[in-house]
Design a protein around this nucleic acid. Sequence first.
DNA 1: AAAAAAT
Length: 504
Amino acid sequence: MVKFSELNISETTLKSVKRMGFEEATPIQEGTIRLGMEGKDIIGQAQTGTGKTTAFGIPLIEKIDTKDGNVQGLIIAPTRELAIQVSEELYRLGQDKNVRILSVYGGQEISRQIRALKNRPQIIVGTPGRLLDHINRRTLKLDNVNTLILDEADEMLNMGFIEDIQTIMASVPDTRQTLLFSATMPDAIRRIAEKFMKTPEIVKIKSKEMTVENIEQFYVKSVEREKFDILSRLLNVQQPELAIIFGRTKRRVDELAKALNIRGYLAEGIHGDLSQAKRMSVLKQFKAGKIDILVATDVAARGLDISGVSHVYNFDIPQDPESYVHRIGRTGRAGKKGVAVTFVTPREMGYLGIVERTTKKKMEALVPPTADEAVLGQKRVAMEQLQEMTEKNNLGDYREFAAKMLENFDAVDLVAAAIKTMTKEPEDVPVSISEERPLPSRGGGGYKGKGGSGRSGGGGGYKGNRSSSARPSSSRGASSGASRRREGGSGGGRPGRTTRRSES
DNA sequence: AAAAAAT
């Protein structure tokens, strides 16, 4: 491991880096910072959550001439939220050097951005549409840009974005340095990318798998109509700290979020049809733990760095293997552990094999708990937690209340009541999630190529997040974790953590 | 076929 202090970074920037809590460079940072500062064009590829923003951010910040008020660096990102996040990180990296950073994206008053542009920012982070808008209004001049960065580069060069990107690139001088970063870079896209670059250095952090090792990956075979029940059982048993549930369409995300709310979970949906204000408030609430389940379309698949996301559920299998890599990469970041569970319908089993071949990682079959097993698992976990709390010996005045109750009630009854409070019984609230065609049907195939790893759903026993840390309930008795109920929800209480079915 | 991205 190389330290940032050994990378020839200026004292000023090093100070910012230290303040951010960074000491040692990750492999992608070590591999690209030096090259970047030499002015080379780079295609940087490394697994999710390994610090790519800092990898391109440091050379960029180092290169900025603070006496020059022109825009010198331009970063383009595929979603508004990601643009905001990147600009915040660059702000921190450039704080001691006093670099001016501005993010521009749709859904925010353009007049406000035009005013901010008059403060002469040196770095712009933006989304394609709004950048073009500013370019056409001549409120953004890119003649002096000497560094162009595409974050999530393969996505930016994909159909749907490529035309906008080419137009934006046309207003940036050819003499620029171009940096492309992503966790995924399909060959076809890489070839397109190289056309926009000058003899790029390819820095690919090689690892056996495309995904990080600290994410445990499972799949659940389930027919469409059973998905939701299985999901709620998994939530009850695995008890995520924070969870992201990905759905295939905006409509599905809406329905899923609503259904989860009906069942008493603290969930909110996010997708591109919501107002920008709503999108930001949902994300803010999720980061603050005011909601603990984020239901999302692929708008949240890439780049978002939210600490505490312990579980990712693909309620619908992603459209392509790259999307899978990015979605599950919302957990297991910066060396932390994560769990990813992907729902697969029987007809999608072949496609699952294609995903696995791309990521070079087999998912483990997870046999979902039955309703009874889920309840049993929760009771067992409740017992463990009560035992743990007792052993910690810090119950303080709770013991006095307990003593008072024991004068009038049976001890067994009281403990039973405690366990019952912590257990979430399944509810028969009918919940409707419209079934959409899981994958486009093309002559019965559905996807290109025949995967056919031909496995049966069976396989390994149920395994969940074994490492889930004990989270003793707070003094107010409110439980935390994604299966926390909304107040006033019937029964309420704290569901269990993880159990292993194999023992039961 | 979907989602994202300007209004």
